[in-house]
């Protein structure tokens, strides 16, 4: 059978590898954080991989993204070094930001990753700046900002949508709607429950896709990003998705319905959905995917071992890297 997908086999393998790497990275952090090995705080992206990877497959290094407190998946999908990320989360000097940022401040400007962000909704104005720069410099770069259903209520997000609309900036506002703002249901906390309606309020097109379906995200994001590069301006994309873990590690998740996590893992796992589609279509084999699984496990094991073995930043490092030149 011919390949029915709009990606060749190599890109499909790459997409799976990226999603699997995010999944194993997060699953490993879940264990290591619970054991007390990791300083600070972590918010895990497991379950949401199809969104980050489906969007980032369309981007180049000169395209900028601004992430959230749940940013590991965005970082990996944008090409940030996994071992550097793990070391960063372990607070080691070999980390992406020399061990001084931690989980919520991983950044790598060489990859267009402007940073995870501990402040809700703070990525939106940053990405408007990046998009304005792309527009003024005359290259085809785009800016993508991710935020959750909770952060969508932040004034920064709404102001940024207004700014992007009036300046016709090449920005994609991605609402990763996993249904909960920390522990609060979106049904309770968002007065205009449709994020698409909010985009419409700024004269901006907006759509909703199934964020557990890589191919739905990939196709919609591809069309939006292509148009943004051509000058079509900003768009809002709502990805309805699942978060496998709590808001933060240690969250007892008492707000969830009984069996919700089990049901999600069983029926709404974006990796399983991807795997089923590509194997049933006869494009990728179980063997090929299993090989990637094994290689990713080795990568994550090595990342943890190297992070644990790496030195902590020294007192002399404290005042270094305070300012970054762009």
């Amino acid at each position: 059978m011919s390949n029915p997908f709009p990606l060749d086999k190599g890109k499909l393998l790459h997409a799976y590898r990226q999603m699997k790497t995010i999944r194993e990275f997060e699953e490993r952090l879940h264990v290591d954080f619970g054991r007390g090995d990791i300083p600070g705080f972590v918010h895990l992206y497991a379950g949401e991989e199809a969104s980050g990877v489906g969007i980032m497959m369309h981007l180049e290094d000169h395209d900028r993204i601004a992430s959230t407190h749940r940013g590991h998946g965005h970082c990996i999908a944008k090409g940030v070094d996994v071992k550097g990320m793990m070391a960063e989360i372990y607070g080691k000097s070999t980390g992406s930001c020399a061990g001084k940022g931690g989980s919520m401040h991983i950044a790598d400007l060489s990859k267009g990753m402007m940073g995870a962000n501990g402040i809700l909704g703070a990525g939106a104005p940053l990405i408007c700046g990046a998009a304005l720069a792309a527009q003024k410099l005359g290259h085809d770069g785009v800016g993508i900002t991710f935020f959750g259903d909770g952060a969508s209520n932040q004034g920064t997000v709404l102001e940024s949508m207004n700014l992007a609309a009036i300046w016709n900036l090449p920005v994609l506002f991605v609402v990763e709607n996993n249904g909960y703002a920390e522990a609060t249901s979106v049904d309770y906390a968002v007065a205009s429950d449709s994020f698409v309606d909010r985009a419409a309020g700024f004269g901006m097109p907006g759509i909703t896709v199934d964020g557990t379906d890589f191919f739905a995200v990939y196709e919609a994001a591809g069309e939006i990003i292509k148009r943004a590069r051509e000058g079509a301006g900003p768009t809002l994309l709502e990805c309805k998705m699942i978060r496998f873990f709590g808001h933060f590690e240690g969250d007892a998740q008492t707000y969830r319905a009984p069996g919700e996590n089990t049901e999600n893992r069983k029926n709404r796992d974006c990796l399983k959905i991807f795997r089923t589609k590509v194997t049933e279509a006869g494009v990728l084999s179980e063997k090929e995917l299993n090989t990637i699984d094994d290689e990713v496990m080795i990568l994550i094991d090595e990342a943890v071992e190297e992070a644990q073995a790496a030195p902590l930043p020294t007192l002399e490092d404290l005042t270094k890297d305070v300012y970054v030149s762009y």
């Binding site: 429950d193 449709s194 698409v196 097109p205 907006g206 759509i207 909703t208 896709v209 196709e219 919609a220 069309e223 939006i224 148009r227 768009t235 709502e238 309805k240």
Partner: peptide
């Protein structure tokens, strides 16, 4: 509420 939210609002 999910009806009429698809990519045709973009294309």
């Amino acid at each position: 509420p999910v009806s009429a939210r698809d990519i045709r609002r973009i294309i």
